[in-house]
Amino acid sequence: MFKIAPLNNQFDHLIHNKINNKTKPLGALGQLELIALQLVKILSQTIKSDVEFTAFKAEICTPTLVVFAGDHGIAAQGVSIAPSEVTAQMVANFVAGGAAINIFCQQLGWQLEVVDCGILEKSPASKVHDCRLGNITAPLNLHMAMSTAQVKQGFSNAKSLVLQLKQQGCNTLAMGEMGIGNTTSAAAIMAAILNLPVTQCVGRGTGVSDELIARKINVVEQALQLHKAHLADPIALLAAVGGFEIVHITGAMLAAAEQGMAVIVDGFICSAAAMVAIKINPIVKEYLIFAHCSNEQGHQQMLSKLEVKPLLQLDLRLGEGTGAALSLPLLQAALGFYNHMASFADAGVEQVV
């Protein structure tokens, strides 16, 4: 369904030489140098010759952050401090411009899109993309959360949306989520893929009590036992324990990589989707930039297992794509020094090592 080209290594020597000849000691810009390398490789995929590459200027164009919203049947079993109705209320808040993600996008230069993947109350706002797979998933500890047909439809929806954004000039895509109960779903995905005890995967989400933590652990253990025959296949895994928004995020990551776009990964929920995407097509990982490590238990371990280093550590646990949004100045700084910082020869500075 998704044909993703491995990143071209043809120009690695030119990129390294350009970075290493800037007026700084080798490696002095740390992680920004690695981000510059990855971004330039992603954004130069269509370049064919050394001459063309030398003239190429990598730039982030129309950066877009998409918040995918979906409701979870498991929320009715008391695994969150908020009822499912809050999902639709927050979607209305996104439309009205009042959420944290609205403020960060306005401040930092992201285009913001909101997608209804399947929430209890359909949004009447024309600004919200209608990609509904239903109005809520089934409780994942009692039934399959959805059908495999719904998963595939979600992938198709995501692919169409990514193509639309690509046509509008976007080459850098971030994703956020909204869905009461979705940390439970993400914890089940994490436990299944990493084969870890559920106690290491379930966290406090938006800030639940010890009693609710115990309930979440029990729910996830029930789900994994119920669906043990479906956990090895990533499509079946999403159908068994996923969420409508997680399905769309997974599909959007794969579709964006297929289109040669940089993909900025937010927190715990989006990282769970990234793990599923990598299971479906491991090449997608080359296009993923992990924005931050959230304060959700398990996220650090998830990132460690993926062998990735996030850009930020701010103890965030809000979701919505807020951590991904905050990473944009660092991405721009990485390309800024790469494109505009003087070389030793340009500046007449004696080269240091």
Results as ranks from 00 to 15, higher is better:
166 K>L: 11
287 Y>T: 05
281 N>R: 03
256 A>Y: 00
281 N>S: 04
288 L>T: 06
208 V>N: 07
207 G>Y: 12
265 V>N: 12
260 G>L: 05
177 E>S: 05
241 V>N: 05
289 I>V: 14
205 G>T: 13
270 C>L: 10
250 T>P: 02
257 A>R: 01
277 A>N: 09
250 T>Q: 00
184 T>A: 11
160 S>A: 14
182 N>S: 04
196 L>P: 10
218 N>L: 09
230 H>L: 12
265 V>R: 11
224 L>A: 06
220 V>E: 09
208 V>H: 08
240 A>P: 04
253 M>D: 05
291 A>L: 11
211 E>W: 09
194 L>A: 14
248 H>Q: 15
160 S>C: 12
214 A>V: 13
257 A>N: 02
218 N>M: 13
283 I>H: 11
235 I>E: 04
281 N>D: 07
280 I>D: 00
248 H>E: 15
195 N>D: 11
263 V>Q: 07
286 E>K: 00
229 A>S: 15
211 E>K: 15
274 A>K: 10
202 V>A: 08
292 H>E: 11
250 T>Y: 03
273 A>T: 06
260 G>K: 01
260 G>V: 06
189 I>M: 12
217 I>W: 08
215 R>S: 12
269 I>F: 04
220 V>K: 08
191 A>P: 11
199 T>R: 10
243 G>W: 01
194 L>V: 00
165 L>R: 11
192 A>E: 09
255 A>H: 02
291 A>R: 12
282 P>D: 02
259 Q>C: 10
209 S>P: 00
212 L>N: 01
208 V>R: 02
172 T>C: 15
197 P>E: 01
199 T>G: 02
190 M>N: 14
182 N>R: 00
264 I>T: 07
173 L>G: 03
254 L>Q: 00
166 K>C: 04
264 I>Y: 08
260 G>C: 03
190 M>E: 14
255 A>Q: 06
273 A>P: 10
193 I>M: 12
293 C>A: 13
258 E>Y: 01
209 S>E: 12
293 C>D: 14
277 A>E: 01
160 S>T: 13
246 I>L: 14
178 M>K: 02
287 Y>C: 06
211 E>D: 15
256 A>H: 00
167 Q>I: 08
267 G>W: 10
279 K>I: 03
244 F>N: 06
